[in-house]
């Protein structure tokens, strides 16, 4: 059974402006993929610890030392819009 999902809510969480047609199409595709992915639930794994990372190491740190920052003009040259040394964006809704 394809998995039913609230695709509009997921798209909103992922900040993707999709139209209704796109939403329907992605919803269907995801449902089918999740039907396969659901197989992971078939394994009796309650007693198994999850693995987040392949490395068994811990504690990788950096010394608290300042290294040079980037040149602002170079940084802003890549920005879609900038004003007086700052990145400019349309108004932000609070």
């Amino acid at each position: 059974m394809p998995v039913e999902i609230d695709i509009a809510k997921v798209a909103k969480l992922a900040r993707l402006a999709l139209n209704d047609e796109q939403l329907a199409s992605y919803g269907e595709q995801l449902g089918a993929i999740l039907e396969h992915a659901e197989r992971v639930q078939a394994m009796a794994t309650d007693d198994v610890e999850p693995t987040s990372h392949p490395l068994a190491m811990t504690n990788s740190f950096r010394a608290d030392v300042v290294i040079p920052s980037l040149d602002r003009d170079e940084v802003l040259s890549q920005a879609p819009d900038s004003v007086e040394g700052q990145f400019a964006v349309p108004r932000i809704l609070e």
């Binding site: 890549q78 964006v89 809704l93």
Partner: peptide, 17 residues
């Protein structure tokens, strides 16, 4: 916001989406 493509919008939220 900082690099690459921008498709404009009325608000930043809309622009991002």
């Amino acid at each position: 916001v900082r690099y690459g493509l921008r498709v404009d919008g009325e608000t930043t939220e809309e622009m991002m989406a």
